[in-house]
Simulated scan of single mutants.
Amino acid sequence: MQTELTQISCTAFVGGKSITKGTLQHVVAFVKDSLDDKEFAQLLIFNDLTGKPIDIDFRGKTAEVLQRLSNHADHASAEESKQPTRRVGRPKLGVVSGEVTLLPRHWDWLKSQPGGASVTLRKLVDEARRTGKNESKARAAQEASYHFMTAMAGDFPQHEEALRALYAGNQDRFYQLIDDWAPDIRDHIKTLAENAFIKEET
């Protein structure tokens, strides 16, 4: 059974060149079978979701490396499954009971709403999730871009200015500043930053 860890999307770089991308399982197998010792010294594998580098133990043969990855993921999954699950509320309906602390005036207002406090709170949470979705996507894209840029482009010209443009939401300025960077690095940054400049729905 393939595990979640081995199936995360990632991209491998040797120096400033992107050499492969795909699932972690695919990337690890590819680089293990393709690179020589000199290239391995320059290898970095990045999580495409977070922009952070992934540490891999490449000792041994390809099958051994993949087995260690699978074992690590299975161990993490087993530890997660040991966590106690709460069964309060109405689990068959997907309802979980929790505790909310509010001032009396908040409770008075909630109780006066159609459907009562629980229905009103659920509506408020759903609305906040809907309206904040783009903001969350933009923040995640900014963070992923930041992590990758710090690792791969920290000594590139106008790196700091590009980061400021990224967090300021200045898309045109950001793309202008990174335009002359190494093509594979620049293009990967653009992919990571794709959602960094989306605007909140009105």
Rank of each mutant, 00 (worst) to 15 (best):
M1D: 10
M1T: 11
T3A: 04
E4T: 13
E4W: 05
C10T: 12
A12P: 02
G16D: 15
T20V: 14
T20K: 11
T20E: 07
K21V: 00
Q25T: 00
Q25Y: 10
V27P: 05
V27W: 07
D33K: 10
S34L: 03
S34G: 00
L35H: 03
D36A: 06
D37W: 00
D37M: 00
F40A: 02
Q42K: 14
L43E: 10
F46C: 08
L49S: 11
L49D: 13
I54T: 06
F58I: 01
R59G: 13
R59C: 04
G60H: 02
T62F: 03
E64L: 05
S70D: 15
N71I: 02
N71Q: 14
H72T: 15
A76V: 09
A78F: 06
E80N: 04
E80Q: 13
R86E: 06
R86Q: 08
R87G: 07
R87S: 10
R90M: 12
K92I: 04
V96Y: 01
E99S: 10
L102P: 06
R105A: 09
R105D: 13
H106D: 11
W107F: 12
W107A: 11
K111P: 00
K111S: 11
Q113V: 01
G115E: 07
A117C: 01
S118L: 03
V119Q: 05
T120A: 14
L124T: 06
V125F: 14
D126E: 15
A128K: 14
R129Q: 14
R129I: 07
R130A: 15
T131K: 09
G132I: 04
G132Q: 11
G132D: 12
K137M: 15
A138E: 01
E143G: 01
S145H: 09
S145Y: 03
H147D: 08
T150H: 10
G154H: 15
G154L: 11
D155Y: 07
F156I: 00
E160D: 14
E161N: 08
A162M: 09
A165H: 03
Y167A: 02
A168Q: 13
G169P: 08
N170M: 09
R173Q: 14
Y175W: 03
L177N: 12
D180I: 09
W181K: 06
A182P: 13
D184A: 13
R186V: 05
H188D: 04
I189N: 07
T191M: 08
T191P: 00
L192W: 04
N195C: 08
F197S: 06
F197D: 03
I198L: 15
K199D: 02
E201V: 13
E201S: 14
E201D: 10
E201W: 02
